[in-house]
């Protein structure tokens, strides 16, 4: 009798064991499939950034190899007390804040147009992708020639790229032109989630289009806005291509990326270059942290993202 009772238990045990074997096989497969991607990503990012931290404590000049000397934090003192670094930092911050703000405004406008237009929707959505598809360097050359005295249709008799602030605004123009479509697409994905009924109901209750936008649409797409802002802020902080082509950093228009590049490739100063790399890395980390803490930007680590 007792053996009869034991049988179902045994069956359950076997089933459990099989299930856990299946689970283990699934786990193994999962890790196996991810392994190559993880190995590549780690070896090309984690290892070099650790190496950069290590190098930043050394006096390392490629023109005098073998003369590397451990100098504690001297490189950091040098960089952080350099007016060139702080000027570049200020310019980078300025470009980041201003261009992200413009991109949000124009991106939202473009998103609404792409979402709502009643004629030629396909045409608008298609042509809005053009700036996204164009190589940044190509677009930068287009802007540079357009603003070059004598050649450009926008320049006329002026030479704005030879002065600091006009140059900065042209850099911002180039950045904004290129990335508004990306911003608009992220926002449009949010707009698609706003229930039509809700907007209609508000309209029936006498809410104007402006009120509907601010009271219903904006709060509902806030997660999309924050994710788009986070991505673009971090991306704008890395600004390099446009400045390199438009001004090469002349007239104090360098960004931190340009200054770091110049120290490495032109100056061959590995120690200072690495120090700047580490400082840029830390700044980016702080911006991302602030975004997620202050605004609760839906930390896109939860299985979703871009």
């Amino acid at each position: 009798m007792s053996t009869l009772v034991a049988q179902p238990d045994e069956a359950v045990d076997i089933a459990k064991r099989r299930a856990s074997e299946g689970k283990r096989a699934e786990q193994r497969l999962g890790m196996l499939l991810c392994a190559p991607a993880v190995v590549v990503m780690l070896s090309v990012t984690a290892y070099p950034i650790l190496y950069a931290i290590y190098l930043s404590f050394f006096k390392a000049d490629l023109r005098t190899p073998g003369n590397n000397e451990f100098i504690w934090l001297s490189n950091y003192v040098t960089v952080l007390s350099s007016p060139i670094w702080w000027s570049a930092f200020g310019i980078t911050m300025f470009i980041t804040v201003i261009s992200t703000a413009f991109e949000l405004i124009f991106g939202m406008m473009l998103a609404v147009v792409m979402h709502r237009t009643i004629v030629g929707r396909g045409l608008v959505r298609t042509s809005a992708l053009v700036p996204y598809a164009i190589v940044t360097v190509v677009a930068a050359f287009s802007w540079r020639f357009a603003w070059t005295q004598g050649i450009g249709w926008l320049a006329g008799d002026s030479a704005p790229l030879t002065e600091k602030w006009p140059s900065v605004w042209i850099i911002i123009l180039a950045e904004v032109w290129k990335t508004v479509p990306f911003m608009a697409l992220l926002l449009m994905a949010g707009l698609a989630l706003v229930p039509e009924d809700l907007l209609k109901a508000a309209s029936m209750d006498g809410a104007t289009a402006w009120q509907r936008f601010w009271k219903i649409t904006v709060p509902l797409i806030k997660p999309s806005i924050l994710v788009a802002l986070l991505f673009r802020t971090l991306d704008a902080f890395r600004v390099f291509d446009n400045i390199y082509i438009l001004t090469s950093g002349a007239n104090n228009t360098s960004s931190v990326s340009i200054v770091a590049y110049n120290n490495l490739i032109r100056g061959l100063n590995l120690g200072i270059g690495s120090t700047m790399a580490v400082l840029i890395f830390i700044t980016i980390a702080i911006i991302a942290f602030l975004f997620i803490k202050l605004f609760g930007a839906a930390a896109p680590g939860q299985g979703t993202g871009r």
Binding site: T45, R238, S257, A260, Y261, L264, I265, A277, F281, I284
Partner: peptide, 18 residues
């Protein structure tokens, strides 16, 4: 990790990769 890498400043890699 992939999210972090997509936000990674490429310039920070250029120096050590070089």
């Amino acid at each position: 990790m992939s999210l972090l890498i997509s936000m990674f400043p490429q310039i920070a890699l250029v120096t050590p990769l070089f």
